[in-house]
Design a protein around this nucleic acid. Structure first.
Lengths: 247, 247
DNA sequence: CGTGCGATTGATGCCCTTCAACTTATGTGG
DNA sequence: CCACATAAGTTGAAGGGCATCAATCGCACG
């Protein structure tokens, strides 16, 4: 598969030759649930690009607690923050949650490509900026929203960003994994779901059904500080969206 | 003041001429407590470099709650994430918490400088990567540590990163501001301080005194997942540190 | 010396975690 | 295809940490 298809944002404005050359330097790895892409503390020799599946970034404390940091989705990079860091060690562990395929770029190759192709560096910078913004939103929501609202917000974003129909769309990974990504325990997740049922949210297996977007917006977006500059709001305002709700 | 003095990391490896040129394009602004550098939603026309003082990034919800996101310290950038974002609007508000001086670079100038000087772009990328890592730590600590531990961790980092002596060093800003930055209410902050007294932490005005680093390490670092690759641990292991404790 | 803001302390309530028991899916070998 | 084992998810009860509201204290300021 060409790089431009896997992560269009990252490889945009890159000459076709450069893309091919970069692609040739990468190995493909197939992994199954429970495998590790890398572990915290190992020498950071590679940058990974997730093609399919799901990966959880986590760390563990000396006391043995595991703290989930982030769920990586297809098209995203892993180990990019270590690419430029002085220490040269991975600062998190990366565990496969869902059978995955990943491209493996040697760190040195990636750094050379960056220097050779300013467009790539610019794209990396843009992705990084977006990630910072997203993490700010995440932090804020941890402090201001309750569990059910965070879950509802996530579902709406999923729907909006992938342009799904609210009445029926698939969950990208299991409930436990999602709970970990949202920073809550599975039990809390389950109870949060119960509360969302009052807003027309039903979840069977991995099928999501959201029938009352209006209630969701008033009871969730209202409590979130992003207000208007949020993908969800824009999605709900789209005319085609109104069409879809009527039909 | 030369740029290299204000933010050495950012302007490293940049030719002196380029530095002077960039510096010439910047206006200096003096601000006092309560002023705003920018507000959420405004057109993002500038990138700011904080020279002195302290700035709080925050957002507010439609319901009127304010959520503190980050405290910006001298030498750091503001509005960098908006520099590359498509929307072109500030995604947070920036309020002065402590009389400040800031350099104001027009967005377009900064973007041009980035293209013209790959070293600048590389440094930006590195700063951004570091910021992501720091935010990961932050998020994790919000979920795993209790308020007093977060405060203790912050104090130790402050001490380690600026190479202060634990027995006596200044707090960079007021308690309320610090509380906001740590994601807790002033009341909780106050109570957290009370708990730290049991570990030899005393705070008079803006003077910090930490007399029992050993207790701090066992009761705080032990619960944190960074374990060894943490500036605090390294600081505590330094030989000069041992000297200092003995003398 | 009063005024106003920052900081402290107490009381109360909510949300989430934790532990435990239970139910429901998932998948494997007979 | 069923029986079984294991994992995933649900539900209940108890407890703790933090937010919230309110009152008081300390301190810098005019």
């Amino acid at each position: 598969m060409p790089l431009a298809k896997i992560a269009p944002d990252l490889f945009a404005d890159l000459s076709p030759e450069a893309r091919v050359q970069l692609g040739a330097s990468a190995q493909t790895r197939h992994l199954t649930k429970g495998d590790h892409l890398f572990r915290c503390g190992q020498v950071a020799g590679h940058v990974f690009l997730l093609v399919s599946g799901a990966v959880r970034l986590y760390r563990e404390t000396p006391e043995g607690k595991v703290a989930g940091l982030h769920i990586v989705m297809p098209g995203q990079l892993l180990g990019e923050t270590e690419l430029l860091e002085d220490s040269g060690h991975y600062s998190t562990s990366a565990e496969i949650m869902e059978s995955a395929r990943a491209l493996m770029f040697p760190r040195a190759v990636f750094r050379l490509a960056m220097s050779a192709h300013p467009a790539l560096m610019l794209n990396l910078l843009q992705l990084s900026a977006r990630q910072v913004q997203q993490m700010r939103r995440d932090r804020e929501q941890l402090l201001t929203l309750k569990a059910s609202q965070r879950l509802g917000c996530f579902l709406m974003h999923l729907c909006a960003e992938r342009d799904y129909a609210p009445e029926r769309f698939p969950l990208p990974y299991t409930k436990s994994v999602l709970a970990s990504g949202l920073g809550m325990e599975p039990e809390t997740f389950s109870r949060a779901l119960g509360q969302l049922k009052g807003m027309g949210v039903h979840l069977k297996g991995r099928e999501v059904e959201m029938s009352d977007m209006e209630a969701m917006e008033t009871r969730i977006c209202q409590a979130c500080s992003l207000s208007d500059n949020c993908a969800v709001r824009q999605y709900l305002r789209e005319p085609e969206m109104a069409m879809r709700l009527v039909s």
